[in-house]
Amino acid sequence: MPRRLLRDGRIVDDDWSYLAEAEGNPAAALMLTLAQWQSDRDSWIARGGRLGVVLQPSHPVELLAPDLSRFELIGTDFSGPSEGRGYSQARMLREHWKFGGELRATGYVRRDQLFFMARCGFNSFELPDTDIEAGQRALSAFSWAYQPSNDAGLPLKLQRS
């Protein structure tokens, strides 16, 4: 059964695969770990096809800078309910590095964090399947925002008034 996820406010089937899921499918759009990408960079480039990479919270986003244009997707992983580095990683990717592709929150992602994640620039979310409909509603939990942010995961940019 394909994985459902929330992307750009809509519930869709995931068209990306982690490496282990892509076995026997040479055309799969691949999400690599940073280690997988770094250890075999040239052969991934030679393989062709759509590439994504998933960062851990401790990875500086600058590591991706030289190759940013090769990725259509960047994921950042949330290790648990207290993890917060991904929010900064997302804003830096969107705002410093002008990453315009899919920015995906993975790992511990729940409806209660979604609004903040979307404001920081995530536009796709791997939620537990049971949380997806509620997650979609959570994107409109608040009607305004006090502070400017990129809001890349929300349908409109929020502001003070």
Partner: peptide, 14 residues
């Protein structure tokens, strides 16, 4: 107060 309320980036600090 307003800027820090629901700041999307800094709601899960160390």
């Amino acid at each position: 107060r307003q800027w820090s309320t629901f700041h999307p980036e800094f709601t899960y600090l160390p």
